[in-house]
Design a protein around this nucleic acid. Structure first.
Lengths: 259, 259
DNA sequence: CGGGTGTTTGAATGGCGTCAAAGATTGTGG
DNA sequence: CCACAATCTTTGACGCCATTCAAACACCCG
């Protein structure tokens, strides 16, 4: 289930870029990140990355692959609370969050990096690594905001809007980490997983996807999603098309999500 | 909209009990809390306690009254993300959370206490006030956990379960802060607000409430909810009644929610 | 080639929303 | 103290969105 792998090629870039997204890092901060390049782990698709009983909860960074935070109810239904992409942090350290008690499961094969040493260094000398500290906070903040966005979808949007908004979010996140080319990105979620994330049945997910394809908003073939009309998709995602006028191009969450 | 009020009577008890819930407080910690008994504010029902533009975001403790975190979508629908009761904290300080950017609105008249001075003292000398620091973390942790629970409701439960679970949560929270007597508590949420919180229409909330009353699980008159059958309500909340057997009395979230 | 998993489609059922209108409750002013 | 408005609750009828059931179709892998 867990095999040690040789040092990943692009993990340095990924980690540096993500932690330094908010502010430029000083040289000694970059050096600290470089020294943290170790303790990789690999999880097979479907295996558990972090369970509810996992007390230590070593903080990790996802280097490659997709994962999700999922909770299963007594009635057997499962709910995907969040999708985790390369460059996302998991595991708390201080000020443990409720999110960190939710089980994390690998969707594809996932490679992670243990950032416990890096975190410890930043915590013990917070004044020495202000850029990294800000980067960590920002990453967590963004995930929380995404969680609230998702809650809005579940609570007050019909199926088409939910799917549209969710796809847009994935698109924007993939774009930030360089996983989009020519408007397309690999989307390894099955329709059943999409349903579990969005609170919809598999069958209905399928129908909605067909509808979005027919509308010329997206294209979907062999696990590759192509966003054909970002603005149109954003418009669908934000409001039901039959409810009154709306100022054009006010996709504020797009710019916000790019952080 | 905001009027200074004389020192509240029971706010000391409330604050001490909530911050000391996880561990007993030292004498100098109690003293710090006592010295923080000032800067009260009162908000009328329906007014905004904390907006998205409110940059300073002074941390406050709700002394009395109910409030909610709400977000409004482009299509006009509003979603209550969380209900805030006396003894709940609002406003971040360090490590700003995404939740703190959501508008907070008073449901009833609300009295709050500014705990900025107390927070600052704890942050500057964390080793001196370990009990209070733990208490603050615990309060935040509990709200996050409730948020996830609510997300589960919205994503994967039908109407009856949602309402049952939500009422049970309110009941447990009211019980902890001493607002339950003889199984009853005052519930100032209108059915429209319940609908906004649970992603259901007013009409359907009404039907579900009638159903719960007819089942002998709750009683409801004049804004007062009486929980007649806690175990039964928990059973309804956790799983749909028609889906297979289920081990009795495994209401794990009840004990967890009492923290 | 066959089995397993994921996708696609149809038909039927039902949960929940919408519309509409009639009570019930509360608060306000004369 | 009563009348009145405003808000909230309750109920019925109707329609639609989404689920469920069922089966056919595609794809991947051993």
């Amino acid at each position: 289930m867990q095999l040690e792998l040789p040092k990943a090629l692009f993990s340095i870039d990924l980690l540096t870029r993500r932690l330094g997204a908010s502010s430029s890092l000083a040289d000694h901060e970059r050096a600290l990140i470089l020294n943290s390049q170790q303790h990789f782990k690999c999880y097979m698709a479907g295996s558990e990355i972090s369970g509810t009983d996992d007390q230590q909860q070593r903080p990790k960074l996802i280097i490659s692959g997709w994962a999700c935070r999922e909770r299963i109810m007594a009635n057997g239904r499962r709910q995907l609370l969040a999708i985790l992409l390369p460059g996302d942090l998991i595991g708390g350290w201080v000020n443990q969050r409720a999110l960190d008690l939710v089980e994390i499961v690998a969707i594809t094969n996932v490679r992670t990096m243990n950032v416990a040493a890096l975190f410890r260094a930043v915590e013990e000398h917070p004044d020495e690594y202000p850029g990294i500290a800000r980067g960590i906070s920002l990453l967590r903040f963004c995930e929380e905001r995404r969680l609230l966005d998702h809650m809005m979808r579940l609570g007050s949007q019909p199926a088409v809007q939910r799917v549209a908004g969710f796809l847009l979010e994935l698109y924007q996140r993939c774009r930030v980490i360089g996983y989009v080319s020519a408007g397309s990105f690999v989307m390894p979620l099955t329709q059943e997983m999409l349903g579990s994330a969005l609170g919809l049945s598999v069958v209905h997910i399928n129908r909605v996807m067909r509808q979005l394809k027919a509308s010329g908003l997206i294209d979907l073939h062999g696990g590759i999603v192509k966003i054909l009309d970002v603005a149109g998709l954003a418009q669908v995602a934000d409001m039901s098309p039959h409810e009154g006028p709306r100022e054009p191009e006010r996709c504020d969450w797009m710019t916000a999500a790019a952080g």
